[in-house]
């Protein structure tokens, strides 16, 4: 994978919440027209990285290049243009609860295009058909199941036919069948529309099913990066632990701690 094929390049990205460092010198690149998966356990820094990439967290200059431009030096106008070229599916869909499904999908089209109302209606129907929600246009988000809400959110994210689609935890909280359906949908979006898809997930099956390239993160650092096969073959202890779904060895520390506690209590009693 050459840097020249990359749509996003990250070099030595550090990130902080206050004085606490969340990301430690991350470096990787995301190739165009592929599905790139960011994997890791909870608290590994996936979401912080995701928020940097979609522009919701300020990025220091010289750390992230998108379309060959340093996003750390972007002004609000540059972000405005970038946001019109990407689609984002948030973890719970982030649908506007006071609008119907169709109104949610219409919103970006109505704001950013001068298309006539009839054309927008047809486009909304097409997007709903794409995500398997035909006939649900006039439903309110509260009337939909969790999986349907995510699919409706996906329909809104692809309403403007984005070049890059960012997806946060597509399978979380869904049953295996619905989750598999959503994975197939992401694969078909890549194949049919040639989108670059960036997925943040901790679901192994989903990641290995859809990912062309992936990184595995832990405590703000990248443990391994490459194709799914590269990740599977990794000998890193923490990667193996993650892939084999073993609990952290710090559990042994807990046992030792409890043992010490018992000793101290018995001493206090005596």
């Amino acid at each position: 994978m050459a840097f020249s094929d990359s749509i996003i390049v990250v070099r030595n990205l550090d990130s902080y919440y206050g004085t606490r460092q969340i990301l430690h010198s991350l470096s990787f690149h995301i190739p165009a027209h592929q599905i790139f998966v960011i994997m890791g356990v909870s608290g590994s820094g996936k979401t912080t990285l995701f928020r940097h990439l979609i522009g919701l967290k300020p990025t220091p200059p010289g750390s992230v290049w998108i379309y060959g431009e340093d996003i750390g030096s972007w002004k609000s106008g540059d972000w405005h243009k970038y946001w019109q070229r990407i689609g984002v599916l948030f973890q719970n869909g982030a649908l506007f609860s006071s609008m119907t499904v169709a109104e949610n999908i219409t919103l970006p089209l109505a704001v950013h295009t001068n298309l006539p109302r009839e054309i927008i209606t047809i486009m909304v129907e097409m997007k709903l058909h794409m995500v398997g929600l035909s006939g649900f246009a006039n439903y309110m988000p509260a009337q939909l199941s969790g999986g349907m809400r995510k699919r409706a959110g996906l329909a809104r994210a692809i309403a403007m036919d984005p070049e890059i689609l960012f997806v946060d935890e597509p399978s979380s909280g869904l049953d295996p069948i619905t989750a598999a359906g959503l994975d197939d949908l992401l694969l078909s979006l890549k194949e049919a529309l040639g989108m670059t898809v960036v997925v943040v997930t901790h679901e192994l099956e989903s990641a290995f099913k859809i990912g062309d390239y992936m990184i595995v993160m832990d405590r703000g650092r990248i443990l391994v990066s490459g194709t799914p096969d590269d990740v599977r073959k990794s000998n890193d202890r923490r990667v193996r632990q993650f892939l084999e779904r073993r609990a952290d060895e710090s559990g042994q520390d807990l046992e030792a701690y409890l043992e010490r506690l018992c000793t101290v209590r018995s001493r206090v009693k005596s």
Partner: peptide, 17 residues
């Protein structure tokens, strides 16, 4: 406030609104 905690405000920004 509910729009904030449900990421709807973030969604608006990411739609360039």
């Amino acid at each position: 406030g509910i729009m904030r905690i449900e990421e709807q405000i973030d969604a608006l920004r990411c739609m360039a609104i």
